[in-house]
């Protein structure tokens, strides 16, 4: 009974690990999510590494930090760390639409704000006015980039506006999906570049530009390349409301990664050796006993030759009993 418990537990752990390894996260902006709302392709193309608050201090100064679609308001500590990254000459790209990046911009003492109303363009778009086309001018290079449920920027006097929506675009203030007389027409500033400390802060009014389903539209991928440049790219994680599965998955993979890259690997390996020995010995004994219990048809025939009066069925039944 005890053996079955051990084997069951090991099997359950193996199944969980297999699921975690094979079934990706479905969360928005997850770098492991290969579905339409994930960032798996962008992560692969730009070799984006994930990073959390608390470790921004170790990023190289010429790297680009993507802060995409935060769900939670930023704390003073988080803002301080991002400020420190900018002070050391890093580039931070804040991409948000109706989220909470305004709290970060406020703490970085930047006047730029995300308006929060939906940007629509009935002419320059992809299939639907809520997926408008905007024009970027980054380092003299023009790019046509598609947004996906985006907003616009306000208070962009401090920096340089690097992307505008078309003159046909409008702000859907009441959310009815149509242009009403009181709703303003574009062009609107949708991305701004600000020189901040030693580094550069870029604010983009859409969080979905680099998701898997948008990366192949227009020049979206080109924009990603231009933003990353020659440095390394990092994605700030821990800003989203994660699903339970993603939480478990990231905890397991994080724990595994921590084990593999730290001194904890050695005690863990020894502990694993203990478990392996225990399981191995159980298995070995089990197999040995099983092989010993094996009786062939020839054995039965030999017994019957010696004892013709014995019943074959009874012998067979007896052997089956012995196997158990």
């Amino acid at each position: 009974m005890k053996q079955y418990l051990v084997f069951g537990l090991i099997f359950a752990i193996a199944v969980v690990l297999l699921i975690v390894a094979e079934v990706p996260s479905k969360d928005d902006f997850s770098p492991d999510n290969p579905l339409f709302n994930g960032l798996s392709q962008a992560s692969k193309i730009a070799d984006i590494q994930t990073v959390t608050i608390g470790s921004l201090g170790s990023l190289p100064p010429n790297s680009t930090l993507f802060i995409i679609g935060p769900d939670k308001a930023f704390t003073e500590k988080q803002a301080d760390e991002i400020r420190g990254f900018l002070e050391r000459g890093g580039s931070a790209v804040v991409m948000d639409d109706f989220g909470t990046a305004n709290s970060l911009l406020m703490m970085l003492t930047v006047n730029t704000r995300l308006n929060g109303s939906l940007l629509m363009d009935p002419l320059y778009m992809y299939r639907n006015p809520a997926l408008p086309l905007v024009r970027f001018d980054l380092k003299g290079e023009e790019m046509n980039v598609y947004f996906n449920y985006a907003t616009v920027l306000e208070g962009t006097d401090d920096g340089k506006c690097i992307a505008y929506s078309s003159p046909f675009s409008f702000l859907d203030l009441n959310g009815n999906g149509k242009k009403d007389p009181e709703e303003p027409y574009g062009p609107f500033c949708v991305a701004e570049s600000l020189k901040n400390f030693q580094g550069r802060l870029i604010v983009i009014s859409d969080s979905s530009v680099f998701i898997n389903s948008m990366l192949d539209k227009g020049d979206n991928e080109k924009l990603l390349d231009a933003l990353v440049g020659n440095g390394r790219a990092f994605l700030l994680t821990g800003l989203w409301n994660q699903s339970e599965y993603t939480l478990i998955r990231s905890s397991i993979s994080g724990g595994f990664s921590a084990l593999m890259n730290t001194w904890l690997l050695y005690p863990f390996a020894l502990a694993l050796l203990f478990v392996g020995m225990e399981v191995g010995s159980i298995l070995y004994i089990h197999l040995q006993m099983k092989s010993r219990k094996g009786y062939s048809q020839e054995d039965i025939e030999a017994i019957l030759r010696r004892h013709p009066e014995w019943k074959r069925e009874e012998i067979e039944e007896l052997l089956e009993e012995m196997k158990k």
Partner: peptide, 25 residues
């Protein structure tokens, strides 16, 4: 209320096109 999705799947989004908008172009 007026809560927008952060994004939609572009391949599944409802196609909305007004051909008359080509006239000004």
């Amino acid at each position: 209320g007026i809560t927008y999705p952060r994004q939609v799947d572009p391949s599944k989004v409802k196609e909305e096109w007004d051909p008359l908008l080509l006239i000004p172009l």
